[in-house]
Design a protein around this nucleic acid. Structure first.
Lengths: 243, 243
DNA sequence: GGCATGGATGGCACTCAGTACCCCCGATTA
DNA sequence: TAATCGGGGGTACTGAGTGCCATCCATGCC
């Protein structure tokens, strides 16, 4: 029974990973797509994969997690990326780069991503699980921004809102790419979506050498100067130091 | 809903016409808070509430849903609110009002909301379920905005990002209110958070007392400040520190 | 009063996800 | 060869969620 073999399928790069994990994922997707998620039991999966039932839960803590096998690694990658020189670069640019990391992970396995998309779109339980995965990315971006915005007034608010906007922009670009069947270029829509976010929060570089500031009367002068500095610093929105 | 009255019903079916739903919620919270969510079984809840096990699942489709008993009604309220004269008012203002509706629901039962907050904060399963609830609000706001932005270029992107930003601002204000133990005023932080979102997406008011400054890049900052000061002569607070 | 009907509830049995505990087997090492 | 260790398997158990049916009760009709 435990005979190996059978279905050993490489999903792109020849990784020195345990083959059993891949076998479980392959079998699960085959069954989920053919007969549905709820209609597939763990026993069905392990029977098709040729492994023991107990082994399934050794690799995946829950039935839903088998659909998102690579997010833990991506989360770790993002942690590492944001941990490199955390105070360098404009904060919003840093989280945009972090979001691009996620898109890249999807783009590495286009057909796997498209199959998963079709699945999560129509299975509420998988959608819910995807939400909690996305939430972890968003929290990580927000935590990073909170540290960067610590000396700003309402820094936490700004951090939460910007993180949510970046994630929403990423999701918008990702979904349109997935809906196209992963045929077009993913990064183009992503760049456009992130550009919208950056210009919304005053982090975009101006197209020409003119900057326009609109302010209400009564706004404290230091806020005005802050906005001007962030707008004229060639896209770097970092707050003034030493405050 | 959160009023503590009529706690456990008699085990026998001699209840006059009791709100069984309320009894289940009350019993569930009592047990969840005292011994924990995972440590409480459905049997514990229905025994304390004095109802049959089958009745629990008649009112709540899953164990987690008993913690969010009023969101279905609030979702319906929001649907109705956005459906009234959908094309009236500024789109962002409309979704901000919709978000205020949710905050108001929380504020109607402060101690219930605080108890729930302490629960969801430390139970991953409840956090995941809350995410799917919030997602439904966000989708509703996004769908509304997509309709309003249908003729704009990138209307769908703008709709998704603005909806996410509004939800994030709402959550930020809501959480700081809940963290305070519901002692302060909830609407003040909410208004400030939503104001930030509105000004980020170019929807801030200030139709009359507005000053516009146009400057070429490279102009020294002191010149810009000089111009602004002369234009805003009424002006302003003081900069943060002597920096 | 007797009876039919429909909604609300309780009881029971079942499936399946997830877990605890223990066993097996092969490889490495003292 | 014995001891150990680690990956995998098997079994039984708990508990969530569902389907089916019996029961109770209120209402309405004859």
């Amino acid at each position: 029974m435990s005979d190996t073999r059978g279905r050993r399928q490489e999903t792109g790069n020849g990784a020195p990973k345990p083959p059993m994990r891949e076998a479980i994922v392959e079998a699960a997707f085959e069954l989920f797509l053919s007969r549905g998620f709820e209609q597939t039991t763990i026993d069905d999966i392990v029977t098709l994969a040729g492994v023991g039932r107990r082994s399934f839960f050794r690799y995946f803590p829950a039935k839903e997690t088998v659909v998102f096998p690579d997010h833990e690694r991506c989360l770790a990658d993002m942690t590492r990326l944001l941990g490199i020189d955390p105070d360098e670069g404009a904060p919003v640019d840093r989280v945009c780069d972090a979001a691009r990391l996620v898109l890249r992970m999807y783009a590495e396995n286009p057909d796997f991503s498209v199959r998963r998309y079709r699945l999560t779109k129509q299975v509420p339980g998988l959608r819910a699980h995807e939400l909690s995965v996305v939430w972890r990315y968003e929290r990580m971006l927000a935590e990073y921004l909170r540290a960067r915005f610590a000396n700003r007034p309402d820094g936490a608010l700004r951090a939460d809102v910007v993180a949510a906007a970046v994630v929403a922009a990423h999701n918008n670009a990702l979904r349109s790419w997935l809906r196209s069947g992963a045929t077009v270029d993913a990064t183009a829509a992503m760049d456009e979506a992130l550009a919208f976010v950056r210009e919304s929060f005053g982090c975009a570089e101006a197209p020409d050498d003119v900057v326009v500031v609109v302010s209400r009367r009564g706004v404290p002068m230091w806020r005005v100067v802050q906005e001007i500095e962030s707008a004229t610093a060639a896209g770097s929105g970092s707050p003034p130091e030493g405050n």
